[in-house]
Amino acid sequence: MVTVNLKINGKQYSEEAEPRLLLVHFIRDALKLKGTHIGCDTGHCGACTILWDGKPVKSCQILAVQAEGANIMTVEGLEPEDGKLSIEQESFRENFAQQCGYCTPGFLMMTRYLIRNNEEMTREEIREKLHGNYCMCTGYQQIVDAVQDAQRKYFATKK
């Protein structure tokens, strides 16, 4: 076993992990943060997306022991304060951008990253940047709506 020290959503954790344990299982099963989902386990679907030093990565494609010293944000970290929704969550809710919700944590983390690191995105650009995330329910229309809406809301806070 190897001890892994890392920061998630601003909180310091220190937990043992077997070298072969995937980061997504470490987050869900050792640290009990169940918001991050696992879908395909092959790096395709994006349900396991987290932010690592602010950039999105797929946590099923990383070993837990590799996250030593990492600064991570998961979907639980979006909430600005207890009971309040973040811009991303608010936009997904208002635009009906989820049905079963399985893919939602991954899309929310991508939205957090994309709206802050791009100039105003067109629908085409949003689709292009989200092609590492699969949704089996919505047909993507409302997800693109939600991302556009979230970016507008985010820019409004900057004015």
């Binding site: 790096g43 940047k129 590492g132």
Partner: peptide, 9 residues
């Protein structure tokens, strides 16, 4: 190559 997430890693 691949997608945004894979390109970060």
């Amino acid at each position: 190559i691949a997608d945004v997430q894979i390109r970060n890693r």
